[in-house]
Amino acid sequence: SKDTIRINGIDIDVKDLHEEWKRLVEEALKRGDEELAIELLERALKE
């Protein structure tokens, strides 16, 4: 798994994120759902 995830052309540092969150965000991006990916990231970062 990578340490960054690219959303809207912005590389976001996710190395401190739990693997499960990372996977969910990557799944959302694979489906092209950037809005969901951002929402998941925000939730993950609050934890």
Rank of each mutant, 00 (worst) to 15 (best):
E27F: 05
H18R: 13
L45A: 10
R6G: 03
S1V: 12
I5M: 06
I10R: 12
E20P: 14
G9L: 04
K15M: 07
L41P: 00
E42H: 12
E26L: 15
K15E: 06
R31F: 09
I10Q: 10
E20V: 14
A37N: 00
W21E: 03
T4L: 08
I12F: 15
K46S: 12
E39P: 00
V25K: 00
I5G: 02
K15L: 06
E26F: 15
I10G: 03
K46I: 09
L45I: 10
I7H: 03
I12D: 00
I5W: 04
H18W: 07
I7C: 04
L36P: 00
E34M: 13
K46E: 09
E20G: 13
E42P: 00
A44Q: 03
W21Y: 10
I5N: 02
D16H: 13
L24S: 04
E34Q: 12
K46M: 12
G9M: 04
H18Q: 10
L17K: 01
E42F: 13
R23L: 07
V14D: 02
K46T: 09
E39W: 15
A44M: 10
L36D: 04
K2E: 11
I38M: 15
E20K: 15
L36I: 05
V14T: 05
L29Y: 05
E19C: 12
D3E: 10
D13S: 12
D13P: 06
G32K: 04
D13Y: 12
L29V: 07
V25L: 13
L45F: 13
K22M: 10
E19F: 14
I10P: 01
T4F: 13
E26K: 15
K22Y: 08
E27N: 07
R31V: 09
L24T: 02
R43M: 12
T4K: 06
A37H: 00
L41R: 01
K46C: 07
W21N: 02
E20Q: 13
H18D: 12
E19H: 14
G9F: 04
D33R: 05
K2W: 15
L17E: 00
I10K: 12
E35V: 14
E20Y: 15
I38R: 12
I38E: 05
E34G: 07
R23G: 05
L45G: 06
D3W: 01
W21S: 04
E47F: 09
L17W: 06
K15I: 06
K46P: 03
L40G: 00
I10C: 08
A37D: 00
R6W: 05
D3R: 05
L24W: 08
I12H: 13
W21L: 09
S1Y: 10
W21H: 04
D11Q: 06
I5T: 02
S1N: 14
K22P: 01
G9C: 05
R6Y: 07
E26R: 15
D3G: 06
K30P: 00
L17C: 04
E20W: 13
I7Y: 03
R31A: 14
N8C: 08
D33S: 05
G9V: 02
R43F: 09
R23S: 06
A44P: 00
K30H: 12
A28G: 00
I38K: 13
D3I: 08
A44T: 01
L36H: 08
L24E: 05
I12C: 05
I10H: 09
V14A: 05
R31C: 07
L40V: 04
H18Y: 05
D3S: 07
A28K: 00
E47T: 09
N8Y: 05
K15T: 14
L29Q: 02
D11L: 08
I7P: 01
E39A: 14
K30S: 14
E35K: 15
K15P: 04
L36Q: 10
E34K: 11
L24F: 04
A44G: 13
L29K: 01
D3C: 11
D16P: 05
W21F: 06
D13V: 10
L29P: 00
I7E: 01
L36T: 08
I5S: 01
A28M: 05
E39H: 13
N8H: 11
R43W: 09
I7K: 01
E42M: 15
L29W: 09
I12N: 02
E20F: 15
G32Q: 04
E20S: 14
D16N: 14
G9P: 01
E47Q: 12
A28T: 03
R31H: 10
D13E: 07
K15F: 09
E19R: 09
R31G: 08
D16A: 11
K22R: 15
E39V: 14
R43A: 07
L40I: 13
G9E: 04
R43I: 09
R6H: 10
E26C: 09
W21I: 10
L41C: 02
H18I: 09
G9R: 03
E20D: 11
K15Q: 10
K46F: 09
I7F: 04
T4H: 07
L29R: 02
L36V: 06
R23Q: 08
V14N: 01
E34S: 13
L41K: 00
H18V: 08
I7M: 04
E19N: 09
